[in-house]
Amino acid sequence: MDSFVYLTGDRFPMVRDIGWNQVNDIYTHHDRILDFDVFVFVTKGSMQVVEGTTEYIINEKEHLFLKKGLHHWGRPETLPGTSWFWVHFNSPTNDYSTYKEQSPLPEIDFFYPDHYAYRFPMPKYGTSPFHRTLENRLQLLVEDFGKPTEHGMVQLSLQVYQLFLELHKATTKAWSKSTENVGKGEAVAGRVMTYLKQHTNEDFDSEQLSSHLKLNYSYVSATFKSQAGLSIIEAHTKLRINQAIDWMRNTSLNVSEISERLGYKNPYYFSRVFKKVIGQSPSAYMSHFYKSK
């Protein structure tokens, strides 16, 4: 069973409880199988816990996510004086069958409901410079948990979601820097995106891209898709449509003029592509905007 805890772009984790604990004697983690996920952050000392058959030693300023439904237990190895925060929460959903595995690329995605239908695994275990701020932030959340207010748990859950998003960004960035192959993949994808943004006014040419990057196109294509979750051609098309939308919002250009600027063969072909990507014709889409006359 996958031991990662997943969050999604369209729902926030729902906090059950949150707190802080310190032990004065040797401590043994509870032997249990939970129906909720757990976030643990050690502020002092060292905690030992086993998930399934994998042992973790969580040292000071390190975190661990424990997944619901897995067997969690421990030995009497957690040091006296160890202190930690915990957050018990329910993940947004168990059914990810319709969710994308990559977060949307901000340069090319449009903010429709399916834009948010993606999931991402929280870093299972680790630390980063961001972790130095966690103790104070978690302490404030614990204090808020003890103050019953209207919509209090919703607000607390949103704050925990924001904290998890920042944790994900910080820890993933630190991990990527230490992983050479991941770093290379991100670099290739970044170079592709730079090239595509410079060529939105023309049809895509794979040989031209390959020559520009001085890399085999099959390698570039596979690397980009693994990083971005869509093909290079799909990304190029979305960038062109995104440029079209920008002109629709901010200029008085009509559909034919926009089509011509983007290098499409004719406005009818442009309209077919636009409708395939957006779901409605350019003229219908333009009617949504509030524009001065």
Rank of each mutant, 00 (worst) to 15 (best):
E202N: 10
M153G: 01
F12W: 10
K214S: 15
M1T: 08
D114E: 13
V192K: 02
R119C: 01
G146L: 11
Q227R: 15
S3H: 13
I57F: 14
E202K: 14
Y219S: 14
E234F: 05
R16M: 03
Q22Y: 09
M193R: 13
F110K: 13
I258M: 08
I233Y: 10
P92L: 00
Y56D: 10
H236Q: 11
K100N: 08
K44V: 06
L165N: 13
L262Y: 07
Y6G: 00
Y264A: 04
T251R: 02
N181M: 14
A189K: 08
T149I: 07
H72T: 14
H29T: 15
L34I: 00
H212L: 11
Q22E: 13
R249W: 11
T127M: 02
R137E: 14
T171G: 06
N201R: 14
R137F: 00
A284Q: 13
N59H: 13
Y6A: 02
F204D: 03
V277S: 02
P80W: 05
L141G: 10
F120N: 01
Q102F: 07
S252F: 10
R261D: 06
T133V: 09
V40W: 14
L140H: 09
L79P: 12
N136R: 07
N94C: 01
I108A: 07
Y27H: 10
L105E: 14
H72L: 01
W84V: 04
L215G: 10
T223G: 01
I26Y: 06
F89E: 06
Q139P: 08
V5P: 00
N90I: 00
D31H: 13
R137T: 11
H199W: 11
E202V: 15
F289P: 01
L7W: 00
F120W: 05
K173F: 12
V23T: 12
F204Y: 04
G279Y: 09
V273I: 12
F39R: 12
V38P: 00
V49H: 05
M286P: 04
E166Y: 08
D10E: 07
T223S: 09
E257D: 09
N136S: 15
Y219F: 13
Q48T: 01
M122D: 01
S231R: 02
Q280C: 10
P106W: 14
Y6T: 01
V188M: 09
G190F: 04
T133D: 12
W247R: 03
Y217W: 05
Y269C: 03
P13W: 04
E60D: 03
E60K: 09
K197C: 12
G263K: 05
T200S: 02
R137V: 03
V182A: 12
R240Q: 03
T179C: 08
E234P: 08
V142K: 05
S157D: 04
